[in-house]
């Protein structure tokens, strides 16, 4: 029988030489070395009483360490075996692609943005109304407080259509392609009683040369809220909340004076837009204001009793901003290589 310390070293070498390649071998290893009754490490412990009292602590410590190492070797082997077992593959090549129920389709980013913007306001309790794209002068301009022969009309390059033959005399019945979704403010108010709380998504037209930044048509979402006690503070808050919902909670907005014939006071809202290189600028994203009393009067609403706010937002521009699209024509070209990205 070797001397006790040598026995530890011998057993260590033996244990290190063992290979464990199956669950059976693992069990055999456990019984041979770690078994309570006939395990070889247990046998070393049994020898402690035979040693010199001074030698006992060192020996005990060495045997304990050996027991820990054997245990670790066994656990590592079992873990490895369990992993390997999981890799037992069926005959199928599971890495082949799946079979889609249909090829990929796509939704147009403009319509998606239009829906998203309207949807946010719907969650704020706005109803949705959609109106005609061919409008009469009264709804597109007159009722919205654009006087005839007024420079405000130059703000919008208008497509005129032929007048209906019997109405030559009445200027209000000049026919236009709506230049904004605002005519629906009038139609909504004409058809009901306050309060009105509605958004109007839709296509609008401008008689402009086509370029990367202007197209002959684009989308807008109009909003209108008329009720007792509506204030500009409400407008500001609602739009600020919209911006946080649409652009993210950390969006910076500012609200500055502007001019629209159909609102007074009028404002524009800008958002701070940061480009990839870290530079940033204020981008105008919508026009708004308190509904002009003339507009309320034209629509048969008493401006002393009711106040209201209105806003209008261009959808193409924010769609381009959020998707890094630099040429508005891309939106109407319908290149599949564009469409498939959305």
């Amino acid at each position: 029988m070797p001397e006790a310390p040598d026995a530890v070293e011998t057993l260590r070498r033996e244990i290190e030489a063992e290979t464990i390649e199956s669950e059976e071998e693992a069990e055999a290893f456990r019984i041979a070395y770690l078994g309570r009754k006939r395990g070889k490490i247990g046998a070393l412990f049994d020898r402690i009483p035979d040693l010199d009292p001074e030698a006992r602590p060192a020996f005990g410590k060495a045997v304990n360490a050996l027991q820990d190492d054997a245990q670790a070797k066994l656990e590592a082997a079992r873990e490895r075996l369990a992993d390997e077992e999981g890799d037992a593959l069926p005959e199928l090549d599971l890495t082949l692609p799946g079979r889609p129920p249909a090829p990929a389709g796509s939704l147009h980013p403009l319509v998606e943005t239009l829906d998203e913007v309207s949807g946010i306001f719907e969650r704020f309790g706005f109803s949705v109304a959609e109106g005609p794209e061919i409008e009469d002068d009264w709804h597109n301009f007159g009722a919205l407080n654009f006087p005839p022969d007024h420079p405000a009309r130059d703000m919008q390059d208008t497509f005129f259509l032929e007048k209906h033959e019997n109405d030559e005399s009445d200027e209000r019945l000049d026919v236009v392609l709506r230049t904004h979704t605002s005519p629906m403010q009038i139609r909504v108010m004409e058809e009901g009683e306050p309060p009105f709380r509605v958004v109007v998504p839709g296509r609008v037209y401008r008689n402009e040369a086509l370029s990367y930044k202007s197209y002959c048509l684009f989308y807008q979402v109009e909003g209108l809220y008329v009720d007792e006690g509506v204030s500009m503070g409400h407008l500001k808050q609602t739009l600020a909340l919209f911006a946080r919902s649409f652009f993210g909670d950390d969006v910076r907005t500012r609200f500055r004076p502007s001019y629209f014939p159909f609102t007074e006071p009028s404002a524009e809202m800008d958002v701070w837009w940061e480009t990839a290189d870290g530079a940033g600028q204020w981008m105008e994203i919508l026009g708004c204001g308190m509904v002009h009393p003339n507009v309320l009067e034209h629509a048969g609403v008493d401006p002393e009793q009711y106040t209201g706010y209105a806003f209008g937002m261009g959808i193409d521009r924010v769609t381009m901003l959020r998707h890094d699209i630099t040429d508005i024509r891309t939106l109407y070209e319908n290149d599949v290589r564009f469409l498939r990205q959305f």
Binding site: A104, G105, L107, L217, N334, L339
Partner: peptide
């Protein structure tokens, strides 16, 4: 719109003019 996109069609937006 969702149904048609799900069936493999792509939504387009063409000029009204």
């Amino acid at each position: 719109r969702e149904l048609l996109a799900g069936a493999g069609l792509r939504e387009i937006q063409t000029n009204s003019m």
